[in-house]
Amino acid sequence: MDAITVSNLTKDFGDVRALDGVDLSVEEGEVFGFLGPNGAGKSTTIDILLDFVRPTSGDVRVLGMDARIDSMSIRERVGVLPDGYHVYDRLTGRQHVAFAVRSKGTGDDPMELLERVGIAEAADRPVGGYSKGMKQRLVLAMALVGEPDLLVLDEPSTGLDPNGAREMREIIRGEVERGATVFFSSHVLEQVEAICDRVAILDEGQIVTVDTIEGLRTGAGATTELAITVDAVPEGAVTGLMTVPGVEDVTTDDRLVTVRMGEGSKSQVLHELERAGATVVDFATRETSLEELFAAYTEDEDETGDRDSVEAGEATAADTVGTVADGSADPAEVAR
């Protein structure tokens, strides 16, 4: 049985079609990332899963139950971190979690959950004084009440610093190990990469693609860029590098050699440089960021897969720096 099944879902708000024939299925036990630019319809889809909003047409089943008719039973088994929520400023963190515990009729200890999300020390303070990140942790704690079978997290890393985002991912992993399914939406794509089994990209109310992160990279013709600093660029190094399998382009600028490659061995590139007589001082890799992949998928169809559009997000992409001693760095590790 799928944790979530959405078939041919359409939602109109007046004249505006927010969702247009969305099909989606999330398997039990997987971490499913729901991507898309702001306004693509991610929150509307989640709102429909939870019966906050009613579909114009289509069939939506959560944990095998009808999202409208069985909404109460669904919400008993689902933990939710909604988007655009507001907390009760005058109530304390502990009161919030206790309210969730009472509402779900479970025996959880509110303090234990607050400790898990790292805000136990603020448990008895009114949440009006919490930072955005603390509120996000608090609502996550409320979502974790009752060991839900499914976690629906709408933009969970909003307001979290990198450390908070890492802790959020650790909690999500813990929940998956326990057997929960996780469905979360995000437009902060680097964070999706670190944790998702599969992702769907939604754009203008339609599913553009559903795939693994790897699959997305291949599909969009992703490349890796190596920025290698050497003591001096030897004669003929560029020609030599071009012969390395996978290398598509080489440019040099003073002591910096920039190599763009698709599938291929990075160490072979370094070996080739050293063979030509250069000493590698430092190097950095930059994979096509999800941001760029994303742009490739969500821009106009005729541009999809086009190299120019893949590179469009260069200015915003996070460069990943490693040293020779460390070998190549995984961008996701640095994002943590």
Partner: peptide, 14 residues
Amino acid sequence: ESGSGKLLLSLPHS
């Protein structure tokens, strides 16, 4: 209006 209704109805309340 504020969005706390979403928090409230995320929990199993009709």
